[in-house]
């Protein structure tokens, strides 16, 4: 047990890296995912095709395969990023596909009548999106987006398999060095649990804040 206590700083530093990976990956995913969602609805065919292919590809490729391609493959093509940056890029790339789908289905849950009513009172495309559709769609998007956040948080552990020294990686290293098994894994598990619960809690709070009071 004292080994864990003396290395708790090490684990916490790893947790810090995990949080950084998660936050950066998630923010990147939301930005890219929003852009893709726009691509998928604009009346410009090439953009729609790109959006559709992107989503299908990145939803279906295992993250580990993507990580290996980016981290070990891209240097062979003359593109080299640091381990951390590569892992963040991968998390953002795969998260974006799920964000895009969450946004699309969020918009689709708004009843058609709402859009018709908005158009009927003379709102333009942008106005009806801004004042009628999106405010309602955002409410249904909160939960799926929280799920993407938790997904990114858990997936960030895969960066350990390619050598980013985040929480899972440091736990495993500690284990190899000291054979102090169960305790370090418990600590890591609790930290992940905390991260997921914080994400879920923040989502629940946001959902309540946004809820329409009737």
């Amino acid at each position: 047990m004292h080994i864990i206590l003396s290395h708790i700083g090490d684990l916490l530093a790893g947790f810090g890296v995990t949080i950084e990976l998660t936050l950066l990956g998630f923010v990147g995913a939301v930005i890219l995912g929003t852009l893709l969602a726009v691509f998928r609805v604009v009346p410009v065919t090439p953009l729609r095709v790109v959006g559709a292919i992107y989503v299908e590809f990145f939803r279906n490729i295992p993250l580990l395969a993507l990580l290996i391609l980016v981290i070990f493959g891209l240097p062979d093509v003359g593109v080299t990023y640091s381990l951390f940056v590569s892992a963040t890029i991968c998390l953002a790339l795969s998260g974006a596909a799920f964000v895009c789908e969450a946004m699309r289905s969020g918009i689709n849950t708004v009843p058609v009548g709402q859009a018709e009513a908005a158009r009927a009172i003379g709102l333009t495309f942008v106005q009806s999106l801004r004042h009628v559709i999106l405010p309602q769609a955002f409410r249904t998007m909160v939960q799926p987006l929280v799920n993407v956040f938790i997904g990114v948080a858990l997936s960030s552990s895969l960066a350990a398999a390619v050598g980013v020294s985040e929480l899972t990686n440091r736990t495993q290293q500690l284990n190899l060095k000291y054979a102090e098994a169960v305790g370090s894994f418990l600590v890591a598990g609790v930290l992940y649990l905390l991260l997921a619960m914080t994400g879920g809690g923040a989502g629940g709070w946001l959902e309540r804040r946004l809820a329409i009071r009737r």
Partner: peptide, 22 residues
């Protein structure tokens, strides 16, 4: 709730590294 919030890789390391000595 526990196993939905713990990364799979961590659990795999448990079976790979933590349990064999036990």
């Amino acid at each position: 709730e526990l196993f939905r919030a713990v990364p799979l890789l961590l659990l795999i390391y448990v079976f790979l590294l933590a349990l064999p000595p036990q």
